Simulated scan of single mutants.
Amino acid sequence: MSVELSPPEISYLGEDDADFFQNVDGRILNTLNPRYMLPVDRDEVKRSELHHRLLQFVFGGKNYIGPVKEALQFGEHRRILDLGTGGGFWAIDMADNFPRAEVIGIDLAPIQPRLRAVPPNCTFELCDLDQWNIPYPDNHFDFIHARSVHCGIHNYPQLLREITRLLRPGGLVLLIEPNLTPLVDGKSAGDSSSDSGLRGWLTLWETYRACLTRKGIDVTVPECLGNHLMATKSFERVMVQDGNIPVGFWPSDPHLLTVGQLQWMDYELFLPALRPLFLSFGMPQSTVHRIIADAQQDLYHPSVPLSARLHIVYASKRY
């Protein structure tokens, strides 16, 4: 199955907003959060869209999982908040799906489409989730969505407390975070033999986790999402769903094959995107080049099936 993406000539709000962007080792990064060192350039926007399409396949064609329609059926003003909206694809799709709801997407950098490409009930705001309070009133939103944001957050429990404040009683939160330990032949890297033939792939992920840890990021957040949410004591009906995502072209099932292709395309863009982060810790250029090149070799020519693990949690705020 072919996957259609946005045309490369699409214009993004922020192309002239120099204060929010910086060039680091040939990639464009944000200026608001020094912990978040993944790029915010066109390749990263494309990767954001790939990840969005992948999750749509995982969720059976929808943009969410859980009782979202129920959470949005009450009240005159229905509001949805997308934390770390990236390219804004989820927010735009949700605005189309729920035209009577107000959808707001916030992110570190203004890389979302210009207004002419955005539904009238969708807006985008700049906000650093790691440094500032999220600037909305208490009990303001019916549904809050956050995915793949923990690698820029040094205090994830504090973010959850802020989500709790913003969500109205009975409102729904949906959290999605990919695990940072890859799966090799169905087993986590820690359980795999060192001679699996994928040393380059495993080394890259070990290096990524080590860099995030040195920046003060808790790399165990994805597998602990449910515990973190329950620790707030503000949510009920906490549902935890973990799943393995194939990487590449090995699944025989057509649905899983499409998911695997999307995840492979995501990773193809993700590997070179790690270069600024690795270099920021003083690694020699040659070492960083070798780590990424060896991982790319394993991605292009894996000796055993590769997979990733996704952690999903949704819950309702207590009345």
Rank of each mutant, 00 (worst) to 15 (best):
M239R: 14
V247I: 15
K317Q: 12
F74M: 06
T85F: 04
Y267E: 12
A295Q: 07
V219L: 00
N155P: 02
H228L: 15
D17P: 03
R147F: 03
L54N: 03
N63K: 03
P110T: 05
Y36D: 04
M37C: 02
S193L: 12
Q241Y: 11
Q131W: 06
E49N: 09
D142H: 15
G170D: 02
N227I: 11
N33R: 02
Q112D: 03
S286H: 13
P182T: 14
K46A: 03
F249R: 05
L166M: 11
G282R: 05
G200R: 04
Q241T: 08
M239N: 14
T31C: 14
P8R: 13
S196A: 14
L306I: 00
P178T: 10
F124D: 00
P251S: 08
H51V: 14
Y136P: 09
G152N: 05
P67E: 09
S286I: 10
L174G: 01
D185E: 07
Y319A: 11
F74Y: 12
R309Y: 14
D25L: 04
G75A: 05
P39S: 08
G282P: 08
V118Y: 04
D43A: 09
F57T: 07
H77E: 13
E102Q: 15
Y156E: 06
P254R: 05
G152Y: 02
G186F: 01
R42T: 05
A273P: 01
R209I: 09
P113K: 06
P137I: 08
V149E: 10
L159T: 04
E15D: 09
H77I: 13
Y64N: 01
F98W: 10
Y267T: 12
P251D: 10
G84W: 03
S303L: 13
I134F: 08
V40Q: 12
G88L: 08
R168D: 08
I153A: 07
V184W: 04
D43I: 05
H228K: 07
V103C: 10
H51A: 12
E236Q: 13
I80N: 02
Y319W: 06
W205N: 09
P157N: 06
I80H: 04
T203P: 00
H255W: 12
N133F: 06
I291V: 15
P305F: 04
L306G: 00
G152W: 06
E268M: 10
L55D: 05
R100L: 09
T181K: 15
A210M: 12
L81W: 10
G14Q: 03
G226T: 10
N63C: 15
Y136N: 07
V173A: 13
L83D: 02
R114A: 11
L204N: 04
S280T: 11
S193V: 03
H52A: 05
L262Y: 08
F270D: 09
A210W: 07
L299Q: 09
E102P: 00
L129M: 02
N179D: 15
L81H: 08
D82H: 07
P222K: 02
R147T: 07
L50R: 08
Y136R: 10
A210I: 02
H150W: 06
Q241L: 12
I104V: 15
W201D: 09
L29H: 13
P276Y: 05
Q73C: 15
D142E: 06
P8N: 10
T213Y: 03
M239W: 07
N33S: 01
K187V: 13
Q56E: 15
L183N: 12
V118W: 04
F57H: 14
A295I: 01
S252C: 01
L175D: 09
I245W: 12
E76A: 07
